[in-house]
């Protein structure tokens, strides 16, 4: 989903950066506040940052599509550390990838951050909260939110591309064309993200029920899995 360097016109590059920066700044202050209150937040943010860095640079070949794509990991991160801190770790990850791996770009940093760190993370978190509100099991809520985070990221990328480069065609037509083109590769990866997110939530709540409670994953009176 990384939009390469220079693909977006500079006005769009500036607009997307301006749109994502408030989320990044709010996330930085959230991290500062949470790490002062809760000692396990810092290693959890470190863990999520490392995982998002690794999985979002991991091109997985999808045999039925003949192409490769990467998961995002933002759904799992948004559930475990919150959507605003996820925006921060995604911003740092995208910066490293743009500079050292030629993956994404500096001019498209804001657009990629908006798609992955804002749209992807917030969509996943909203899906998780809504699904848990309807008392779905933790693993199922986490799985669906993980898949939503992945698909929303790619939906956001399609929207950015459509808005910036639609020329005479309608935005909806262009968005649909790009989003549909992503699907053969992205649906299997969304399923993979669902499985990994469910597994991670299950692991955290069974291995560290105290952490699960503090993260709001399980009820305060529960001992966990």
């Amino acid at each position: 989903m990384h939009i390469s360097e220079g693909i977006l016109p500079l006005t769009w590059a500036a607009a997307t950066t301006a749109a994502s920066l408030p989320f990044f700044l709010k996330g930085a202050s959230t991290i500062k506040r949470k790490t002062q209150i809760e000692p396990s937040v810092k290693p959890m943010i470190g863990l999520m940052g490392s995982l998002v860095f690794v999985v979002s640079a991991l091109a997985i070949p999808v045999p039925i599509a003949g192409t490769a794509a990467h998961p995002t990991g933002v759904g799992m991160a948004a559930i475990l550390i919150g959507p605003f801190p996820t925006t921060v770790i995604t911003g740092v990850v995208l910066l490293f990838q743009a500079v050292f791996l030629a993956h994404g770009g500096l001019t498209t940093w804001g657009a990629n951050l908006l798609n992955m760190g804002v749209i992807g993370a917030f969509a996943a978190y909203a899906a998780f909260v809504a699904l848990r509100h309807f008392r779905l099991p933790l693993w199922l809520g986490g799985a669906l939110a993980g898949a939503v985070g992945d698909l929303a990221t790619y939906g956001g990328t399609a929207l950015t591309m459509a808005l910036a480069l639609h020329s005479e065609r309608s935005v909806i037509d262009v968005w649909t064309a790009i989003f549909v083109a992503f699907m053969p590769t992205q649906i299997p990866l969304a399923i993979l993200e669902a499985v990994v997110t469910a597994g991670m939530l299950n692991f955290v709540t069974s291995r560290r029920p105290d952490l699960g409670r503090r993260l709001g994953l399980i009820a305060a009176d529960s001992r966990g899995g």
């Binding site: 989903m1 390469s4 693909i7 192409t67 591309m161 790009i178 083109a181 992503f182």
Partner: peptide, 11 residues
């Protein structure tokens, strides 16, 4: 990757 085939292709 889809970054090349889809995003790059459309660009």
């Amino acid at each position: 990757g889809v970054d090349t085939t889809v995003v790059g292709g459309f660009a």
